[in-house]
């Protein structure tokens, strides 16, 4: 890993130092994190005590019913919200605000409407600060962006604006944007939940293909789709409804790198889906 990090703050320096010495540390370490919201003078616990340790290079999913605090947990890991108690460390550094180590993909693809697809995808890498750069200059970066656009099937859409493309294409562009930025941790907040089932399946296959070549990236995926969680990750954490706590952690019994077409018909996966459903269904009130 060549890191030509432009040092702009003490934070970045600390990250760099930690990187050099601590490959054995978990990429993301959540210890004793709780979150309580105060709404109209009433305290409302959103997260019970959460402990997670995610080794580098692992893809983990967090599934749970709507409103269980999944997104709050991801926001705390990403540094967008502060925990009420406890700490989050990313690569050994305590999270104290958004870290350049973490790339975030939001529920809505969240592209800038005033930029075309190419400019959106290159944006984070070109203007972002403190990223671990794996490109040498602008020309190299542009070639890299073109490569990723090719990979996600958007080569012909590079000059189009977000309003001119479909939801699936926007999701792919958002994915390409965060992959190009080359952060060591990816936080995905239900990135495919607004897409139809077929588009979602196509994106699962695409993402597995991308991840196969990219073994040292740690990913935390939030979803309420158990099958999506199982197909895409090494481990699945199951959360209870509010206040959210981790009910269970499951190892997905499939190998890695993973072939989408095999995974999707694997009987072990179906069995585990049933297991997780049984664990969650008692909490679901309809």
């Amino acid at each position: 890993m060549t890191s030509e990090v432009t040092v702009g703050s003490h934070d970045v320096n600390a990250v760099k130092n930690a990187l050099a010495s601590t490959d054995a540390l978990p990429a993301v370490d959540v210890s004793g994190v709780t979150k309580t919201f105060v709404i109209k003078r009433q305290t409302r616990p959103a997260l019970g005590e959460i402990n997670m340790s995610i080794p580098a290079g692992r893809v983990i999913s967090i599934v749970g019913p709507t409103g269980c605090g999944k997104t709050t947990l991801l926001n705390i890991i990403g540094g967008f919200e502060r925990p009420t108690e406890g700490t989050v460390r990313v690569r050994g550094v305590t999270v104290n605000g958004p870290s350049p180590e973490c790339g975030y993909v939001f529920q809505e693809a969240n592209l800038f409407p005033w930029l075309d697809v190419f400019s959106n995808v290159i944006f984070a890498a070109r203007y972002g600060h403190g990223l671990r750069k794996d490109w040498s200059d602008e020309k190299h970066l542009r070639a890299k962006v073109d490569q990723y656009l090719e990979n996600v099937g958007l080569a012909d859409a590079r000059k189009l604006y977000p309003y001119q493309i479909s939801g699936g294409m926007r999701a792919r562009a958002a994915l390409a944007r965060v992959l190009v930025a080359n952060t060591s941790v990816l936080l995905l907040d239900e990135p495919f939940s607004s897409l139809d089932a077929l588009t979602r399946a196509a994106l699962h296959r695409l993402l597995l293909g991308e991840l196969a070549e990219d073994v040292d990236r740690t990913i935390v995926l939030i979803t309420h789709d158990i099958e999506e969680a199982l197909i895409l990750s090494h481990e699945v954490y199951v959360m209870s409804p509010s206040p959210g706590t981790i009910l269970e952690r499951y190892d997905v019994p499939l190998g890695w790198p993973r072939d989408y077409d095999e995974a999707v018909v694997d009987a072990r996966l179906t069995a585990q889906k049933k297991l997780i459903l049984d664990r969650l269904l008692p909490y679901i009130r309809i």
């Binding site: 702009g8 990403g78 967008f80 605000g97 958004p98 870290s99 350049p100 973490c102 790339g103 975030y104 939001f106 809505e108 969240n110 800038f112 005033w114 930029l115 944006f123 984070a124 203007y127 972002g128 600060h129 403190g130 990223l131 930025a181």
Partner: peptide, 27 residues
Amino acid sequence: QAYLRAARNYHLSRRRTLLYVVLPAAL
């Protein structure tokens, strides 16, 4: 907020946030 969040996520400097996110969004 979503655009500002994106800017924070990419660790844009204050100047770049103003120039490349706030200005076009406010245009």
